[in-house]
Design a protein around this nucleic acid. Structure first.
Lengths: 251, 251
DNA sequence: CATTATTGTCTAAAAAAAAGACATTATATC
DNA sequence: GATATAATGTCTTTTTTTTAGACAATAATG
């Protein structure tokens, strides 16, 4: 299948994914740098196949970038203003890959559809950053994690999409217990607190935070974690539920 | 402009609106009954013009049905499963209006696009039910308010869309102060309480509810409302902010 | 002018959240 | 092996918020 055969896709609709990971008290976004001359990054995205649901399309796009399929993801908003499209930038991308198109026997007309107005469905994904090995697509020259507070220049309205995703994560962190999808299988209470403080950008008191989390009765206490540090070793915990069961309040 | 000229629209994408009103302790949905033989209602919906933003499209669709343009509305979810489309029902609709198409010089091919798979963007609108005079479109035989708890049979996945809209309204009622869009310009505290109890489906104590709302410092107290009832007359209140400023927390 | 049905507002009790205090413990140092 | 250090686990106290209870105010009615 040619990746730019417009008959396969729903036209003028795309999916953009904000893939979030957590490490070192930083919320990080996985961003490919596309192969064009300018210094511009984009959200990993793609199109929806005619015989594919939205969620399946998002999962496919995520699997292509992260190599993992059991991922927590959720749509959070549609972006459909008239100004968001940028035919000029798309032209640059097409120009860069022109030789490849010629080889495949594609004409300018065949690929012109990507320059039309697009409506984009925003998904956010929460992953254990240590499980992910970023994958470059044919169109990328790199694909790396960036601190959400220091994003490189993003194309189209992608900076806005990231900020809206963060807003949603903040809102939902207290409704569903989705934050644990950002942590590894086992973790210490300090790591949970670091995560909450980073996402919500506010400090918690250690004693009260621990009580709050434990009172939710969602964590299973495991053995202690001995790091070699000269202090009392913290317990490890594991989240009781799986990805699919994390939806506790909404939906 | 012909309403079924596919060149004007973004293909395979529609907007469905859950228009909510409040009256008599009931949350009500505005539902047109489409002109086909079967007893089936649909959400008021439409397509997105190529030169129109999503919000503008939704506003246009709403204005067509309700006659008012200053409306609180917000997208809440995209519906894009493979099963949601129903070519059979669309065929029935086309059959019913066949004569009209022939008159306009349209062929079966010209209108076949409406039977393809559609992705639908769900919007909900909150209106003062007393300001709205429901309007039938050319395709409707009626357009009325229905208690959300006793909906008539709905086409496609529209019943699910309504329930998801209600879920969002419940979630957002405590984050933004959108509920007041369902009330008239002025209202008594009892009406606010009735609204909250209906939407959230739980009772509040009168004294504590009043304190909670007044402590928000969002209401302006006006004169008393004398109804002729043999009891103390309640004060009237007005919401301080306008529609556009209702977004206090998110976004 | 007493009665009735609500409404507005105050106070008391209960619950929850925030702050403070302190014992525990894994390792390093002596 | 005793002591010091730094972080952890947990308890108590204080403060704030929420819930519950109580009662005066008032607009008709008869």
């Amino acid at each position: 299948m040619n990746i730019l055969n417009k008959e396969d896709y729903i036209e003028q609709v795309s999916i953009d994914c904000v893939i979030l990971g957590f490490h070192d008290r930083q919320l990080r976004v996985l961003l490919p740098k596309i192969k064009i001359l300018k210094n511009i990054w984009t959200l990993p995205g793609g199109f929806i196949l005619q015989n594919e649901s939205l969620d399946d399309a998002a999962l496919r796009i995520l699997a292509e970038r992260t190599g993992i399929r059991d991922i927590y993801l959720e749509q959070f908003r549609v972006f459909g203003s008239l100004e968001r499209s940028s035919p000029g930038l798309m032209q640059d991308v097409l120009d860069f890959h022109w030789d490849k198109f010629l080889e495949s026997g594609l004409t300018a007309e065949d690929v012109a559809w990507v320059q039309r107005r697009f409506i984009s469905i925003g998904y956010y994904a929460l992953v254990d950053i240590h499980k992910v090995v970023p994958v470059c697509s044919e169109l990328d020259e790199s694909c790396e994690w960036y601190d959400i507070k220091e994003l490189p220049p993003l194309a189209f309205d992608h900076a806005e999409i990231v900020m809206k995703a963060l807003g949603y994560l903040r809102l939902m962190l207290n409704h569903k217990l989705i934050g644990f999808n950002l942590l590894p299988e086992t973790f210490t209470m300090k790591e949970v607190q670091d995560l909450y403080e980073t996402v919500l950008d506010k400090p918690f008191r250690r004693n009260n935070f621990q009580k709050m989390i434990l009172d939710l009765d969602i964590l299973e206490r495991l053995e202690k974690k001995f790091t070699g540090a000269a202090n009392k070793a913290p317990y490890l915990y594991r989240f009781k539920n799986n990805i699919g069961e994390a939806d506790l309040h909404l939906e």
